[in-house]
């Protein structure tokens, strides 16, 4: 309409290695900011209620577990599980409604951004929600004197990475979903059983060996094996292994999600 517009350098391009995901992330952030209070409440209050309820209620009846109070044991599990939940809900229900119901992705796809940028934006955003959830829980338990700082601060990058892994898997499920109902399969067949055998609520060492073996393949077990020692003020074992699994899941699942979503939307 007037003089030629100036553009920031670096945008747009394509994929994880460009910065095209940033405006997509910022869009989701702006929506979240408008609804931040109920959202934070959900991310924080829910796991805290479980933690305090089970930790004090059940913990009073239990002897020490793995050498610590049940509450101490449970906190790590709840942080990791709520990080997983935050990323999962965001990459399933919220991403799906932006893809299908609101057609937000369609609107972005006719700008210079690509579908890879959109998916990378969703991935970063869902992981950010995990981070936010983990961060706020850590804040509360530190205030209650239930974490051992400063080592516990290393939990934050681990939570972020856990968020990435489950966001990437969630985007695969989102790409395959014909409707919202489909997500129930994912929760019932994957998320809930994984919660039970990954050492969230109780140690897995006492489970039958076959289940223990399955659990050692699940991303949630690797996340919890990093977070639990850190909260107790110890260095985790096999750091490289656990981090590599979470990173590997993120990269592979994201590639699959890109492939499936391209096939779904750009054919």
């Amino acid at each position: 309409m007037s003089a030629p517009l100036s553009r920031k350098p670096g945008i747009p391009n394509a994929g994880l290695l460009s910065f095209g995901w940033i405006p997509v992330w910022r869009r989701n952030f702006l929506v979240w900011r408008k609804l931040a209070f109920p959202s934070l409440l959900g991310n924080l209050a829910d796991p805290l209620i479980y933690m305090l309820g089970l930790g004090y209620g059940l913990g009073r009846m239990l002897p020490q577990i793995s050498g610590v109070d049940y509450m101490q044991f449970l906190i790590a599990g709840m942080i990791v599980a709520s990080a997983m939940n935050a990323a999962t809900f965001e990459s399933l229900y919220s991403a799906f409604s932006r893809m299908r119901t609101q057609k937000t992705w369609d609107a972005i796809l006719v700008t210079p951004l690509s579908l890879d940028d959109v998916l990378a934006g969703e991935l970063f955003w869902a992981a950010s929600k995990s981070f936010l959830s983990g961060f706020s829980i850590l804040l509360v338990i530190s205030a209650l004197g239930l974490s051992s700082l400063p080592l516990a601060l290393w939990v934050l990058p681990i939570i972020f990475l856990t968020g990435f892994a489950f966001a990437a898997i969630g985007l695969v499920v989102c790409a395959l979903a014909p409707s919202y109902d489909f997500f129930m399969y994912y929760f019932t067949l994957f998320i809930t059983p994984m919660l039970m055998i990954s050492g969230i609520f109780f140690p897995v060492e006492n489970l039958p060996h076959s289940i223990y073996l399955i659990a050692s393949w699940l991303p949630l077990s690797h996340a919890v094996r990093l977070v639990r020692p850190l909260l107790l003020g110890e260095y985790p074992k096999d750091i490289v292994l656990h981090v590599s699994v979470l990173l590997g899941v993120t990269i592979v699942a994201f590639r699959v999600a890109v492939f499936l979503t391209r096939r779904r939307l750009l054919n």
């Binding site: 747009p12 405006p23 869009r27 702006l30 609101q102 369609d106 609107a107």
Partner: peptide
């Protein structure tokens, strides 16, 4: 597009501003 895909959570102003970011505009 044939069917409106405006952002329902945003104001008129925000819709334009957020959309301009996809073009890398200042």
């Amino acid at each position: 597009p044939q069917f409106d895909n405006l952002d329902p959570d945003f104001t008129v102003n925000e819709n334009l501003l957020v959309y301009s970011r996809y073009f890398g505009l200042k």
